[in-house]
């Protein structure tokens, strides 16, 4: 097991190199002069020269790549052209925001999706089954931007229940420790900030969680249906076990493997793909940051963020693979 984890972590290196080459090439493949496209047409020759010097754009490509990688390994992901802050610093507040939102969305998706899937499978062809599977179909087909706007219109504009944007209301003070606001407010015992940040995360969380929820629900249902027909379920019933034990213990642990795969995949996807949700709800996360950086041609930021998201994606996949062993002891890693 330990060997397997080490081997998988070593495999990160080629992935890292591959992604870094792609991210690196992104900046260099822009037609024309990258310095010009970043600074715009109004830039003076001196400004262009200094940017070229800063990004070492005059060196041969391999040399550029080598010096970029050297910096990355040292933990220097470059500087934003717009804010002149280091990318690390910019991301250190935004990444927790994105992770918090993704985790929140994923937890909602798992709890509701798995439960709906189980009940649909256990009560196949019941009204609940039809209702939840129709709901899931709507869930996967609903464009997030539309759903988000409708939620804002209903809950913020019309009902005034929830704030439409941001992570905290203006004027709410919160001492940040981890930059996960929900966690920080609990750690500091600041219940007002907790309620406030919870109110802020509800809508983007649900909007972001809809598609994973629908996919998880459908996957759980079909996987459970398959497992519930297995012989060992008949055995469990023949032992006189209570129905909830048969379904939630014997069937679910067997049915969970494909669901886990989907969850891992969706989590990676949420981390990198929350662009729409973060933009609609003005959530100060990585997705929105990348989106703005692309628009403002802040390529060092784009390049480094892609790298970070890719590494996290791979790590989440590794965690998923390790969790498989818990759900299915037949899996061997050696």
């Amino acid at each position: 097991m330990i060997n397997y984890i080490i081997r998988r972590l070593l495999l990160l290196i080629p992935v890292f190199i591959g992604v870094s080459i792609l991210a690196f090439a992104l900046l260099r493949l822009i037609p024309g002069d990258p310095a010009k496209s970043m600074l715009g047409n109004k830039a003076t020759e001196a400004q262009l020269q200094s940017l070229r010097a800063e990004l070492k754009l005059n060196d041969p490509l391999p040399v550029q790549y080598a010096s970029y990688m050297k910096d990355v390994i040292k933990g220097d992901l470059g500087k934003s052209i717009k804010s002149h802050d280091s990318v690390i610093k910019e991301i250190s507040t935004r990444l927790p925001a994105t992770i918090e939102l993704s985790l929140f969305a994923l937890i909602i998706a798992i709890v509701i999706g798995v439960l709906a899937g189980i009940i649909s499978a256990a009560k196949r062809s019941s009204w609940f089954d039809h209702l939840s599977m129709t709901g899931a179909l709507f869930g996967v087909s609903m464009p997030i931007f539309w759903l988000g706007l409708m939620m804002i219109w209903l809950f913020s504009v019309t009902l005034h229940w929830l704030p439409p944007s941001g992570r905290l209301s203006v004027g709410t003070h919160l001492q940040t420790i981890t930059n996960f606001y929900l966690v920080d407010s609990i750690l500091t015992g600041n219940w007002f900030a907790f309620k406030d940040s919870l109110a802020h995360i509800l809508m983007p969380g649900f909007a972001l969680g809809t598609i994973p929820m629908a996919i998880i629900a459908r996957m759980t249902r079909s996987s459970m249906l398959e497992v519930l027909n297995q012989d060992f379920i008949r055995t469990a019933n023949a032992k006189g076990l209570a129905k909830y034990l048969v379904i939630f213990k014997h069937a679910l642990k067997n049915a969970f493997l494909p669901v886990l795969t989907v969850i891992g995949f969706q989590f990676g996807f949420l981390l990198g793909g929350a662009v729409l949700t973060e933009t609609i709800f003005s959530w100060p996360g990585v997705g929105r940051y990348v989106y703005q950086s692309i628009l403002s041609r802040d390529y060092p930021v784009v390049q480094s963020t892609i790298l970070i998201i890719a590494v996290m994606f791979v790590l989440i996949n590794l965690i998923t693979d390790i969790l498989y062993k818990y759900f299915d002891p037949r899996i061997r890693y050696d």
Partner: peptide, 9 residues
């Protein structure tokens, strides 16, 4: 082969 639950001891 199939009557025992594969994921429990």
């Amino acid at each position: 082969m199939t009557s025992l639950n594969p994921v429990f001891t």
